[in-house]
Design a binder for these strands. Structure first.
Lengths: 371, 371
DNA sequence: CTGAAAGCGCTAACAG
DNA sequence: CTGTTAGCGCTTTCAG
């Protein structure tokens, strides 16, 4: 009667205490299972909790203790690699009292989302957006444990989990060069993203690409091509690239999303058979037979697991920064293969009918990627 | 000196008040921009806030007022359809003071995640996991605004946003039957998911499928085939199906993830040309030229937008339940086409080379889906 | 228009 | 082992 039809006031620790005939502190101890409660009392309190359907308020608890919440800031969720990371993070949290919440970045950079998490008193934050300022992160990390995932900076205040991008890229390049490819394009994002010194994975991949090419002694045949961050953008760029000869014989995309865009262009130009394509991230789609994309597996779940584990360690009291490197491995699929006949005008169209085109017979048994 | 090297105590409203030479209440008013503050005071307070880099504690605020947080509970993030919903939700939040947090369901059902959100005092919850009990949700909804997304139940306490699954399915069936298909399979999840009365979208799609078939007068040629909820599972089921003749001429999958699994099997059996495939959700992948999947567009962003808008309305004081239906539309792509020659033994393999097979010439110009 | 005072629900320190 | 007593940082009356 006292609360009209509006929102029901929830049951508080006080109510439980009253129902069980004990003090609030006693109830508090029971729910945190702190020491110093008699079994009898514990039982009574638990009964009352059960009966009243009591749930402690995380907000109130956060005011003094912890919120038992870990935050994961992510750039756009369209990125499949994130799914792997989230899966790993959830695994690491299983059986703990902690809950994961994900805050998607609003704009291009994740400041808003990260601050929102911090404001909500999460006990730890995993940052995935690669473009947040390192100093800013350091400052943040003085207030709450932070793990930066994916970037190669080495802060003294926050931890990092990264893939070994140099090793991953080397594997790609050894593979491609070993197959005879020389005219190979590295399709990557705009310069801001690959600027050295940012520690961005794409910066390292770019550098490793250039080094591999130089080491192979044929720098003039390899090129870096810039595109946007979306699949759509990669598709446009690749289409552009394919509108001029000579074509590259292999394309190494900075990540699978770009590779998918490039693949779309290859399909449209019916060039899948002549041009090898390699991605990075080994996103679940790469394995689909209709895509079958050669890609570098970064072990996303492992990364997510480690990041959460590190946060938990910090919460437990660890004080030294820790930097964990995950070793990737190349997964070869049908999108790549030996260099085909090295003729710029070489074309065949038997392999994969263009979207609405008419399939035609052709020289299907030439060497080349199997698609 | 008083706080050692450990965590930095954050700046509170008290500090700001002191710095600005006003009371805490005054500061509070400024940050909430409540009425009753002189411009001069506002300016001074804002300056102090700026200077001290003050950020209000959401936890403390939640204790009395609201947390300015909306929660989105989701089943596994691998589902691409969710991405669309999240995008829409974020759009609807743009320019408001509210922040979106996503809580991924722990197990098969979302209770844990939903409770976690409620415990964290979010101001509203969008529930996507379809299997949570309706009564349980009703109870939840007495304490916090709730929108159930995707399920067709009509509660008096919580709002709903759903796609018109009957209309969507009808479009699919009219399309397929119109092309001459009769031997069509509806690939859907296990019976628990399609049980009538749950209001699950898959229940409605199944029923609409059966009705369409009945209306077409050839019930014996259409079948419902059950599979798990994963792509992998759909692939296995479909492979199984393709190991026996006669094949269906068309497959209507309950959602795109199942369709992708089915597509994998089609590719493996090199059956893409003979069997039309239709999905549901029009996930971004469906548009990729290497996939080119005919699918029903549910307008996920619109759904996400509406769900959040409804929550906001509830927070503003709306009291009557509201149930919003979004009309879907079929997007035809290359995975479907006219019924091919109706011979159970009919096979061709010119269309799409199997994963590691050798392409061969064949009767490519027969009618059939263009892949 | 401004500020003092009283909590929100919980935990932590301490006294019994 | 149990209960009392102070707050955590903020909002919200309600007097001035």
């Amino acid at each position: 009667m006292s609360q009209a039809s509006s929102r029901r006031r929830s049951v508080t620790i006080q109510d439980v205490a009253r129902a069980a005939g004990v003090s609030r502190a006693a109830v508090s101890k029971v729910i945190r299972d702190a020491s110093g409660v008699s079994p009898a009392m514990r039982a009574r309190v638990n009964a009352a909790i059960e009966e009243l359907n009591y749930r402690p308020s995380v907000a109130a608890r956060s005011l003094r203790g912890s919120s038992y919440t870990l935050g994961l800031e992510v750039p756009h969720l369209g990125n499949r690699f994130l799914t792997q990371i989230v899966d790993g993070a959830l695994q690491a949290l299983e059986g703990t009292r902690y809950q994961l919440v994900i805050a998607p970045a609003d704009g291009r950079e994740g400041y808003g989302a990260i601050e929102a998490l911090a404001d909500r008193q999460v006990d730890g934050i995993v940052v995935v957006s690669p473009r947040v300022d390192a100093d800013w992160l350091e400052r943040l990390a003085t207030g709450v444990p932070v793990v930066m995932l994916g970037r190669h900076d080495r802060s003294a205040r926050y931890d990092t989990v990264v893939g070994d991008d140099v090793a991953g890229t080397r594997q790609v390049m050894e593979y491609l060069l070993g197959l005879g490819h020389r005219r190979v394009v590295h399709l990557t994002e705009e310069a801001a993203v690959t600027a050295p010194g940012t520690g961005s994975p794409h910066a390292l991949r770019l550098r490793a690409f250039e080094e591999a090419v130089r080491a192979a002694g044929s720098p003039e045949l390899a090129r870096v091509v810039r595109t946007g961050q979306t699949e759509e953008s990669a598709r446009a760029t690749m289409n552009d690239l394919l509108s001029r000869h000579p074509w590259p014989t292999a394309v190494f995309a900075g990540h699978d999303q770009l590779a998918l865009g490039a693949l779309a262009a290859l399909v449209e130009h019916d060039a899948g058979r002549e041009i090898s394509l390699v991605g990075y991230d080994n996103t679940d789609l790469a394995a689909h037979p209709a895509i079958s994309l050669t890609s570098v597996d970064q072990r996303g779940p492992e990364m997510g697991r480690r990041a959460v584990a590190m946060l938990l360690e910090r919460i437990e009291g660890r004080d030294e920064p820790q930097h964990h490197v995950v070793t990737p491995s190349l997964v070869v699929r049908d999108s790549s293969g030996p260099r085909p006949v090295d003729n710029p005008e070489f074309r065949t169209s038997c392999a994969r009918p263009a979207a609405a085109g008419t399939p035609a017979a052709g020289a299907c048994d030439l060497p080349g990627p199997r698609r």
